[in-house]
């Protein structure tokens, strides 16, 4: 095919600039067009609206716990006894596989609120079991203490404390 000699400008021809501009703008357009297809998989507005759960603490007696549901996961809400609190506070933090003082894990020491999902591979630990008077995960043998901290077993970190706040003395909002 016959072509007219393009005018050289700094090594880039005038014709090339047009192609670069068209190609560049197409790429921008394509990226903008793809975004909605990716974004639609993110949580939708109704799912985001359910990202908090409120729990009434009134019926939970000392030494007992309930399991609430937050974002589809179990959350242990335990009303700790004086003995459990003391045990948690007496532990030497530096000896822990995942060092964390009990005070960092609670707002009010008598209420322990943790996501009830083992940090190893996701099973739900059983309460009031295990060698540390806390929780025991039957799947692979992780032991958690009265503060929900990992003491023995394959789990790498302590049971997760979700964000929560006290709405009043008897009500918390998780998330």
């Amino acid at each position: 095919m016959t072509t007219t000699t393009p005018v050289e400008e700094d090594g880039v021809t005038r014709r090339d600039f047009l192609y670069v501009a068209a190609g560049g703008l197409s790429a921008v357009g394509a990226a903008a067009a793809i975004w909605p297809f990716i974004s639609q998989m993110n949580p939708s507005a109704d799912v985001l609206a359910l990202s908090t759960t409120e729990v009434d603490l009134e019926g939970i007696e000392t030494g007992s716990e309930i399991t609430a549901v937050w974002q589809g996961k179990p959350v242990f809400v335990r009303h700790r006894t004086e003995g459990e609190i003391k045990k948690a506070e007496d532990v030497v933090v530096a000896d822990l596989p995942d060092p964390e003082p009990d005070a960092d894990r609670v707002i009010k020491p008598e209420w322990l609120i943790m996501v009830g999902v083992c940090t190893h591979l996701g099973c739900i630990p059983l309460k009031e079991q295990g060698d540390y008077s806390g929780w025991f995960c039957p799947c692979h043998g992780s032991h958690y203490d009265t503060s929900g901290r990992i003491r023995k077993g394959p789990a790498p970190t302590n049971l997760l404390i979700p964000p929560y706040e006290f709405l009043d003395d008897n009500n918390i909002k998780i998330g």
Partner: peptide, 13 residues
């Protein structure tokens, strides 16, 4: 309607 109102860019899709 959930797609139209709640899903991100659902109305567009």
């Amino acid at each position: 309607e959930h797609i139209m109102r709640d899903v991100n860019y659902g109305w567009l899709l």
